[in-house]
């Protein structure tokens, strides 16, 4: 069956035509909150937690002319591999644009749930053991090492620090074993009969 390409094309045309005025992507934020149940804000992909519009550091009104030029290059990076570094996006935001290209990213505004599937599945920018794509699905920040789905984070950190945990367990057991003998020794020494025997001994 042949599908009608016009609805998607029209939507894409509208999105592209208004790309310069659309600064943030609330549909993506809504999708993450809906699928993960976690609250997220613009700081997941942007430099500023309130998004790109404004005059604070990381927002458009605060950019220098060189940064504005870089922003222009990033906005024109329609194809993947542009190696752009938009000053209003954080490392994860730039990773999305560099991996997918602006064109595919804008297409995904219509189906934001697919964004995580389209991203490289092995990339882990914060090196917390949870791939960025998974962090996007679970609503945790791909650039904050301490933020991750608790169970996934626990498993990754446990595996990474297993030797250290084993050594600490051995140290604890040995410490308790030593304390046991030390306290039994104290007990024996303080018992009067033992003390008496000690005093009577030549």
């Amino acid at each position: 069956m042949r599908t009608n390409p016009f609805p998607i094309a029209w939507k894409l045309l509208i999105v592209l035509a208004t790309a310069n005025t659309l600064q943030a992507y609330p549909e993506l934020q809504k999708q993450i909150v809906k699928s993960s149940g976690r609250n997220v804000n613009c700081a997941m992909c942007h430099e500023h937690s309130d998004g790109p519009e404004g005059t604070a550091p990381g927002q458009i009104g605060h950019l220098t002319s060189a940064e504005q030029a870089e922003l222009g290059r990033a906005r024109a990076a329609f194809n993947p591999g542009g190696n752009v570094k938009s000053p209003i996006l954080n490392a994860f935001g730039n990773h999305i644009i560099n991996s997918l290209g602006k064109k595919q990213f804008l297409e995904l505004k219509v189906t934001p749930a697919e964004l995580a599937d389209k991203l490289p599945q092995d990339s882990d920018l914060d090196k917390d053991g949870i791939p960025d794509a998974v962090e996007l699905r679970t609503g945790t920040h791909p650039l904050i090492k301490s933020d991750g789905q608790p169970w996934l984070l626990f498993k990754a950190n446990f595996a990474e620090n297993f030797t250290q945990i084993l050594l600490m367990l051995a140290a604890t057991i040995l410490g308790l074993w030593g304390l046991r003998h030390l306290l039994h020794g104290f007990d024996a020494a303080t018992r009067s009969d033992v003390c008496d025997e000690y005093e009577e001994s030549p």
């Binding site: 997220v40 945790t140 904050i144 933020d147 984070l153 950190n157 250290q164």
Partner: peptide, 26 residues
């Protein structure tokens, strides 16, 4: 000793902040 090991494993493996969403820790 047991409590220390539980605490140590939690300390190493599970950041307390991971139980909340990140915008709360900005």
């Amino acid at each position: 000793g047991f409590a220390f090991m539980v605490l140590y494993i939690l300390g190493v493996c599970l950041p307390f902040e991971s139980l909340f969403s990140y915008p709360l820790f900005e």
